[in-house]
């Protein structure tokens, strides 16, 4: 039995249940890095190239947090997850970037997924991983199925409105439809920007405290989001950004939320353009705000902006309600 380390960063929030089920089914122990703390961030900043985005710096920190505690590090190379759609170049180079920047690491298990240019790679790199871990093809197949099943039920929990952390823990929705909120806000971002409460300055918690019901793009189905994104632009070729664009168009149409907050990491290439496109599309029709974060982002600045945004929406809503009441009284 080997100890397999998974950094609690980047697509951990998208795929951890899948990976955990896969490795557990193969009889290995999965070790997750600690929740982000100052030391982890500082280690990451020290090792990553200074111009890299915060999420990658953080990843480097989590990798170092696992050093000495695991036999292997699992760092997949997610190139293309759907045809003609890609991940950011930094995801494509991730295992190499880690090797290049962090010394004295345990061996890295990397599974490459590139369904656009080389569909067979997923299978062949999985087989290679199996060989390394001493698993037979049959065992791999079973573990793969277990992973998929875990992933499906994770997605289902997200769709029920659980936060990523709750859904990863596997809790069933204790939350009945909340009715006592002042406003509903959609938080559109890569999960790794908003789910790590240390990095996001507990953005979700703060919003909830201010009386907001918070929802994210992961509460909607992926196929639907992809299709919706086309009404903004049919040229978005980044899988993750496409999801965000689709969600923005969904909320614009349904008015399920009172406002949209876009959260992006400073230096994020795809977001720098797609977020702009979303903001330009939405801003005249629905309250929208973009928060750009890096390791220098202070809590006070975030709080001020959130408060201003929430106050604005609440005020707008109460005016609308008052106007409606007046109209009703006159009638």
């Amino acid at each position: 039995m080997a100890r397999i380390g998974i950094p609690r960063a980047l697509f951990y929030y998208d795929y951890f249940p899948l990976w955990q089920a896969f490795f557990t089914a193969l009889g290995h122990q999965v070790v997750v890095s600690d929740a982000t703390n100052k030391g982890i961030l500082e280690d990451g900043i020290k090792r990553a190239v200074d111009e890299t985005c915060l999420p990658v710096k953080l990843y480097m920190g989590h990798v170092q947090n696992l050093r000495g505690r695991v036999d292997y590090l699992f760092i997949p190379r997610l190139v293309s997850l759907e045809e003609k759609h890609f991940s950011c170049p930094k995801f494509i180079g991730l295992p190499d970037m880690v090797r290049g920047s962090v010394p004295n690491l345990p061996p890295i298990l990397d599974v490459t997924v590139d369904v656009t240019d080389n569909k067979k790679l997923t299978r062949s790199s999985l087989l290679e991983l199996g060989k390394l871990l001493g698993a037979s093809q049959g065992q791999l197949g079973e573990a793969y199925q277990a992973g998929l099943q875990a992933h499906r039920s994770y997605r289902a929990r997200l769709k029920q409105g659980l936060t990523h952390a709750e859904a990863i823990r596997g809790s069933t929705p204790a939350k009945t439809a909340a009715t006592d909120y002042l406003l509903r806000v959609a938080l559109l971002s890569h999960p790794y920007n908003i789910c790590d409460s240390w990095v996001s300055n507990n953005l979700i918690g703060k919003l909830q405290k201010m009386g907001a019901d918070v929802t994210t793009a992961d509460a909607l189905s992926l196929g639907y989001l992809r299709q919706k994104a086309n009404s903004l632009s049919d040229q978005i070729f980044w899988t993750f950004e496409k999801k965000l664009a689709g969600a923005a168009m969904h909320y614009l149409e349904t008015r399920e939320v009172d406002g949209i907050i876009l959260v992006m990491a400073f230096e994020c290439g795809p977001d720098s353009l797609v977020t702009e496109l979303i903001e330009r599309e939405v801003r005249d029709r629905l309250p929208v705000m973009t928060l750009c974060m890096d390791e220098h982002t202070g809590e006070a600045g975030i709080v001020t902006r959130l408060e201003a945004f929430v106050d604005m929406i609440v005020r707008q809503k109460s005016r609308q309600e008052a106007a409606a009441a007046k109209e009703w009284a006159q009638a």
Partner: peptide, 22 residues
Amino acid sequence: AQGYGLCRFGFYTEVQQKIMRE
């Protein structure tokens, strides 16, 4: 030029076009 699978460059025109229009 535009196109998928490139870096951000492949997506320039979508945003530039929108900016010019606005």
